[in-house]
Amino acid sequence: MGRAFRWLIPHPLLTLLLTVVWILLQNQLSAGMLVFGIILGILIPWGTSIWWPDTPKGFRAGRMVFYSVIVIWDIIIANIQVAWIVLTVPNAKLKPAWIVVPLELRQPEAITLLAGTITLTPGTVSADLSDDGHELLVHVLHTDDPDAVRDEIKTRYERRLKEIFS
């Protein structure tokens, strides 16, 4: 039974996500649409499984929801901060900086999530990865203390992502 389930639905979260996306695309909820969404959610991961060779082990969806809430809150705060910097800090006083964030995360999925989070939050853009994948290059718009920004990224986001992908 377990093997049949895994053969039919190799990526349960992807199936759920595709079903929800289909229902949202239809913009209405009816039984027929739900069934068709579930069929798509099973067929698409099955047909594209060659590009998903392994599922991340020990992914914790509950903590991921909590993490998303924190990130959305940070995005709102970040927007206000960046808007304030744009409107009040003159170009000559702007202090942009490169910072190097040493990564403890190793899974490609986790590093992608971290890089995306950094780009969406306070005045930082993730620009590049070192060739061995152990450091992330981040550009900061305006900071007096680059080390503090690096420590905040590590404690606020990377620590939580390590718990999600443990």
């Binding site: 744009v86 780009t119 853009v125 550009h139």
Partner: peptide, 21 residues
């Protein structure tokens, strides 16, 4: 922000963040 900043890297910050919200 896109018009004001002078350096291409800082100019990148304004649309990516303020745009999403």
């Amino acid at each position: 922000g896109l018009l004001k900043f002078s350096d291409p890297m800082t100019r990148l910050h304004a649309p990516t963040k303020v745009g999403t919200l």
